[in-house]
């Protein structure tokens, strides 16, 4: 087995330990924390007044723009890391920089377009 796989065994061990830690914390909570539920305590917190309506309501949807922008640039990041490794390979260096430059430029056009359409300004 190579060293990489052994590292992941530690990740597995920490995961199991983390499950144990969380379970222990929840047992401690169950033992120590007082429980005296009442209607008012279990109601949804809305700054002390009675909650109005449920949790399903209409709301602003403007955050979706950031999700789209993120997807665009996250794909870019997937390609960046392998590129970081081959940059020093002879014969790939300059050519890969130019190609990557064109790729990122296309993404920047997308960001500029989003900015021009006003998705990023609220007021």
């Amino acid at each position: 087995m190579n060293s990489g796989l052994l590292g992941y065994l530690v990740v597995l061990g920490v995961t199991l330990g983390g499950v144990g830690l969380f379970t222990a914390a929840m047992v401690v909570r169950r033992v120590l924390a007082p429980r005296a539920p009442s209607g008012a305590k279990l109601a949804t917190y809305e700054s002390g007044v009675d909650p109005s309506g449920g949790d399903w309501q209409q709301s602003g949807f403007r955050y979706v723009a950031y999700a789209f922008l993120y997807v665009v640039f996250a794909v870019d990041a997937v390609y960046l890391f392998p590129w970081a490794l081959v940059l020093r390979t002879s014969g790939l260096g300059i050519a890969s920089v130019v190609e990557m430059g064109i790729f990122i430029l296309v993404l920047l056009v997308g960001l500029a377009h989003a900015a021009r359409r006003g998705v990023l300004s609220w007021l």
Partner: peptide, 20 residues
């Protein structure tokens, strides 16, 4: 440790409990 443990009535309980 000694704060009262509250899971609100409106909460989606498994998700609420698992998030921490």
């Amino acid at each position: 440790a000694q704060k009262e443990d509250i899971v609100p009535r409106a909460a989606d309980k498994p998700v609420f409990r698992l998030a921490p």
